[in-house]
Simulated assay, not measured.
Amino acid sequence: MKISEILHRSAIIADLKSNDKKGVLEELAAAVSDMAETDSQQILKVLLEREQLGSTGIGGGIGIPHGKLNAINSIVVGFGLSRGGVDFDSLDNKPVHIFFLLITPENSTGSHLKVLAQISRLLKQSDFKDRLMKAETVDDIVQIIHDVDDEF
C-alpha cells in the first residue's frame, strides 16, 4: 500500500504552528477530520489515549501518532512538518519534526500494521527525511512522498 495513494493533500500541514504535543495532535486531527468524516475531537481523544500507552515519537525526529476509531470506514493518513521541532517525549528525547498521522477503523489490524510498516520503511531513508525537512510547500511534500513511494 502506497502512502501517496492514501495521503490527501488536504491532510498535509507544511508548517505546524504548535510547539507542544497536544497542539500538534490537535492540528493533525483537524487536518484529517473532513477526510475521516468525523469530529476532530474524537480523533484527538484516540490519539491522546494512545500516547498515554507510550510516545509515538520513535526517534530520529519522527513521530507516528496513530490510533483506531470505530467511527471511520477507511484508513486516514495525515502529515505535518514542524520547522522548529516539538518535544514529543520521543524515545531519543530529541525534538520531532516529521509527523505521519494514522487513523484506522477499529477492526483493521492488518491494514493498520501494513501502513505503519510502509511509513517506517520510507522514514528509514535519510535522503527522504532530509528532503521532507527542506520542503516548503504542500506541493513539495506531495512530490517527495510520491517520488519515494514509487521506489517501493
Rank of each mutant, 00 (worst) to 15 (best):
K2A: 07
I3G: 05
I6D: 01
S10A: 12
S10T: 08
D15P: 02
L16S: 02
S18P: 03
K22D: 03
V24A: 14
L25D: 05
E27W: 08
A29D: 06
A30L: 14
S33P: 08
S33I: 00
D34Y: 05
D34K: 03
D39H: 00
S40L: 01
I43N: 02
L47A: 02
L48Q: 11
L48C: 08
E49W: 00
E51F: 07
Q52H: 10
G54V: 05
G57W: 10
G59I: 03
G61E: 01
G63P: 05
P65Y: 14
K68S: 09
L69G: 10
A71V: 02
A71M: 10
S74W: 07
I75L: 10
V76R: 13
V77F: 13
L81C: 04
D87F: 06
F88A: 10
D89S: 08
L91F: 09
N93A: 15
L102K: 06
S108F: 08
S111I: 10
H112D: 05
L116D: 09
L116A: 09
I119F: 11
S120L: 01
R121H: 12
Q125R: 13
Q125H: 12
F128S: 09
R131A: 13
T137F: 14
D140A: 04
I144S: 11
V148R: 05
